[in-house]
């Protein structure tokens, strides 16, 4: 039974290579629930809370992207530079749990747990984020789309640590919206992130809590690009908007559960995506 609290990334990687099956704990907001509820009984733990290198962010050399540390608390994304660069991420961050949870939780945890309701995940998907994984001896970058495999399943290999995500800076508009049955501190019933890249004339839409993992609506994205010129700001015609929502709903794969019904979730993502598209073209 060991608890390792590395102070540097190098130390952390050494620990995780030495004990590839150790439980990684970042903010603890997911893992501790499982332990408190007796669903998991870890023996060896690597706690990353002291690894400052992953609790920061930095521009890439060409300034076209930002590397966001996996341990940067959501609270730090709600305002400031990250919020200006990635408004959708800031908006998603603000909907995570409560202020107490946002002080502890981070993207690394969302990716590690890989719940389809993870609030930041639709944003990572819509932004085509890359997940940066490291071991003591190597590193690999993987598209977030390939990283998220299924319900609470991801592509992290034993011994690997999620150290950061790389997010491209988009010229255009981005937004996030989430439906829950309470006006604060609520798990997503359905969520949507929409990003319009004005430079490329492309749109991306990602949905949360309406499938086994985050859903990227690629067919609808391609369809819309053929319907309107995404490079210029313009109002979207009502019939087009209607069809857009319907297509988004068709790409979702929701289920009935105790939080909602599949029918409502389909309706919710259609509505959220329409509203976001309108917001994108009225700003």
């Amino acid at each position: 039974m060991t608890v390792a609290i590395p102070q540097t990334l190098r130390e952390a990687l050494a620990f995780s290579s030495a004990n590839p099956n150790a439980q990684i704990i970042q903010g603890g907001t997911d893992l501790m629930v499982e332990i408190n509820f007796n669903h998991r009984k870890p023996t060896d733990v690597i706690a990353l809370r002291r690894v400052e290198e992953i609790r920061n962010y930095a521009y890439t050399a060409d300034k076209s992207k930002v590397i966001v540390g996996a341990g940067l608390p959501y609270q730090k994304m709600e305002h400031g530079e990250i919020a200006e660069l990635f408004p959708a991420l800031a908006q998603a961050a603000r909907t995570v749990g409560s202020p107490q949870i946002r002080a502890a939780g981070s993207i690394g945890g969302n990716l590690g747990t890989c719940s389809p309701a993870g609030d930041a995940l639709p944003v990572l998907s819509a932004l085509n984020a890359e997940v940066n994984l490291r071991t003591e001896t190597g590193s690999r970058d993987i598209s977030v789309h390939d990283f998220m495999i299924g319900v609470k399943r991801n592509d992290r290999k034993p011994g690997e640590l999620i150290i950061s995500v790389t997010l491209p800076i988009i010229q255009g508009w981005q937004g996030y919206a989430k439906v829950g049955v309470r006006n604060a501190m609520v798990i997503s019933v359905a969520s949507c992130c929409l990003v319009v890249d004005r430079k490329l004339g492309a749109i991306s839409v990602a949905l949360g809590a309406v499938g086994p993992t985050i859903i990227r609506c690629r067919e609808t994205e391609q369809w819309l690009a053929t319907q309107i010129d995404l490079k210029s700001i313009s109002a979207v015609a009502p019939n087009l908007l209607k069809e857009f929502g319907e297509r988004i709903a068709n790409e979702s794969k929701p289920i009935d559960d105790h939080r909602s019904t599949a029918a409502y979730r389909r309706h919710a993502v259609a509505t959220l995506s329409r509203r976001l598209l309108v917001r994108a073209n009225t700003k």
């Binding site: 903010g27 603890g28 907001t29 408190n36 706690a47 409560s98 107490q100 502890a104």
Partner: peptide, 11 residues
């Protein structure tokens, strides 16, 4: 401000 139920004490 954090929830102490979600902090592993040993960490």
């Amino acid at each position: 401000a954090v929830c102490s139920c979600l902090v592993m004490a040993a960490t």
